[in-house]
Computed example of a mutant assay.
Amino acid sequence: MNIKVNPQIELKPLEMGDSKPIFSILDQQRDYIGKWLPFVQYTHKIEDTRKFVASMIEEAEKNTTKVYSIMLGSELIGLISFKDISRVNKSTEIGYWISQDYQGRGIMTDAVRQMCKMAFEEWKMNRIVIKCAEENYPSKRIPQKIGFKYEGLERESIVMIDGQFANLEVFSLLKSDGMKI
């Protein structure tokens, strides 16, 4: 099921046909996107992306992950996902990235809002988490704008492309908190 974000943007469930545009963005913006997403350094050919997409589709069938392509009309411009979905604990984490060409337009903030709305209203989740690299200021602004609360720092939680560890800031939103419009 596709999710309408606004008149121009729609989220559609990830499918194998998305592999080529995903790889194209990652390959063209390797330095920029790879700065914050370490997996980019392991994505050297289209087959690497196909394997990723296939694994995410398999995880979606198990209801542990749900990945959506962010579509501007017919153009894929990024990905957003629910990961670590726990129906028992009524919690999930949202992860995202968007092409540098489309940043700063509010697209991702609106997409995250729609994902939160779906998690709280349709899935009856209680808690949503977003984790961002400590120095990734554009990414951190998204949960802050929506009303997520800063919970703390996961020290040296992720290995970056340069082999150095980076801290992740953890933000959460409870259903009872309500979202900022």
Rank of each mutant, 00 (worst) to 15 (best):
S19C: 11
S69I: 06
L37E: 10
A54I: 06
F148H: 02
V53F: 14
Y96W: 00
D162C: 03
D27Q: 12
Q8C: 09
I80L: 02
Q29A: 07
E75R: 07
P7H: 03
P138E: 11
G104Y: 06
R141P: 00
A54H: 11
D18F: 05
E122M: 08
S24F: 03
T65W: 13
N126F: 06
A119Y: 04
S139A: 13
I130Y: 04
S157A: 15
Y102S: 05
F148K: 03
P7I: 05
K145V: 07
N6T: 01
K45V: 14
K90T: 05
M108S: 00
I57Q: 15
Y32L: 01
F23R: 10
G152Q: 10
K35S: 08
Q114P: 00
R155L: 14
R105I: 02
G106V: 12
K62F: 08
M118K: 10
D27A: 09
G17L: 05
G73C: 01
L37K: 03
N136C: 07
D18V: 01
T43C: 13
K124T: 08
R155V: 13
D110H: 11
D31Q: 14
D177L: 04
Q100Y: 13
V5D: 05
S157H: 15
E135S: 07
E47G: 11
N126V: 03
K83T: 14
I181G: 01
I9A: 03
L26F: 11
R105F: 08
N2G: 06
N136W: 04
V129H: 07
R141C: 03
I94Q: 10
I181S: 06
T109P: 03
K131V: 01
K35Y: 07
S91Y: 00
A60H: 14
Q164D: 14
Q100M: 07
G163A: 01
I22T: 09
G163R: 02
S74W: 00
E135K: 13
Y137R: 04
N2W: 11
S86P: 05
N136A: 08
R127S: 04
L168Q: 09
F165Y: 15
V40M: 06
W123H: 15
T109M: 04
K117S: 05
G106D: 08
L76I: 07
I181M: 05
L79I: 10
Y96K: 00
R155W: 13
D84K: 10
E15F: 01
Y32P: 00
M71L: 13
G73H: 02
E154W: 12
L168D: 11
M115A: 13
T92G: 09
V112P: 01
A119V: 07
L174R: 12
N63H: 14
I161V: 12
P21N: 13
Q144G: 00
R105Y: 11
S99C: 06
Q164M: 14
Y96N: 01
L26Y: 09
V112C: 04
A119S: 09
R127W: 06
W36I: 01
I158R: 11
R30F: 06
D162A: 06
